[in-house]
Amino acid sequence: MTVDAGFVRQIFAGLEQGDGAGFFTHVADDADWTVMGTHPLAGRYLSKADFIAGTFAKLGQVLPNGAQLHVDNLIVQDDIAIVELHSEAIAKNGFRFDNHYCWVCYFKSDTIMRVRAYLDSVMVARLFEENPI
């Protein structure tokens, strides 16, 4: 099944508008999500709930207005979408968390089944060093 670029852009618009819940309706409950790197958010999450608890919930404790994600580029082929994003967030202590991401998303129909997420590990580590949870 081929994923439509317009559809992918539409579901990521939820994240851009701060609607994480809307975005996550398009993620399988048993999604396999790996956050690459060596930092407090890195790891393999074998469910949507574990991913949210291990990343978004932690970020929510140190970024009062959330990660504020924005899509920079989108490449779609067959059932894979490569989404480049950046954040424009400010941490509780005033640290600018302007990180850059690349999410490689594997779809089945209109549902994200697997993601490999790449980001600046040093910036994430610094965020949590300066804003412990």
Rank of each mutant, 00 (worst) to 15 (best):
D79V: 02
I82L: 00
D50P: 05
A81L: 08
V83W: 00
D72Y: 07
V62P: 03
F51R: 15
D78R: 14
I80K: 03
V83K: 04
E84V: 13
A53K: 07
G66E: 06
I82P: 06
V62A: 03
L74A: 15
V76P: 01
Q61S: 14
V83G: 02
L74R: 15
V76D: 00
A49T: 13
I80S: 05
V76C: 08
D72W: 08
E84C: 04
Q61V: 12
L74F: 09
F51A: 05
F51V: 03
A81D: 03
D72I: 15
H70Q: 15
D78F: 05
Q68A: 05
A81R: 08
D78E: 13
L74V: 15
V83M: 02
Q61M: 14
I82T: 05
G60S: 13
V83P: 03
A53F: 01
Q77K: 10
G60D: 13
V62W: 10
N73E: 10
D78I: 12
A81N: 06
G66H: 14
D79N: 11
D50F: 01
Q77D: 01
L85Y: 09
G54K: 14
I82A: 02
K58Q: 15
P64K: 11
D79L: 01
V76M: 09
N73K: 14
P64F: 02
T55W: 07
L63T: 03
I82Y: 05
Q61T: 10
I80W: 04
A53H: 11
N73Y: 09
H70F: 00
P64A: 12
N73T: 07
D50L: 04
D72P: 08
G60N: 13
D78K: 11
Q61Y: 04
L69H: 12
N73P: 03
I82N: 07
T55H: 08
I80T: 12
L85V: 02
Q61C: 05
D50T: 11
V83N: 02
A81P: 00
D50S: 06
N73I: 01
H70L: 09
A57I: 06
V83C: 01
I52W: 01
H70I: 12
Q61P: 03
E84M: 06
L63N: 13
I82G: 00
H70V: 14
D50Y: 09
A81W: 01
Q68E: 05
T55E: 12
D50G: 06
D72Q: 06
D50A: 07
V76Y: 00
Q68C: 07
A67M: 10
A49E: 09
I75S: 08
A57Q: 08
L63K: 12
I75P: 00
P64W: 06
F51D: 10
A67Y: 03
N73H: 00
D72E: 14
A49H: 08
Q61W: 01
D50H: 13
K58G: 11
L74P: 00
T55L: 00
K58T: 09
I80G: 03
A57T: 10
I75N: 15
Q61E: 04
V76S: 00
V62M: 11
F56I: 10
V71S: 14
F56Q: 15
L59T: 12
I80L: 09
V62C: 03
A81G: 00
L59S: 02
L69A: 13
G60V: 05
V83Q: 07
L63I: 04
L85E: 04
L59E: 13
E84F: 04
F51H: 12
V76K: 10
F51C: 06
K58Y: 04
E84S: 09
N65A: 07
L69K: 14
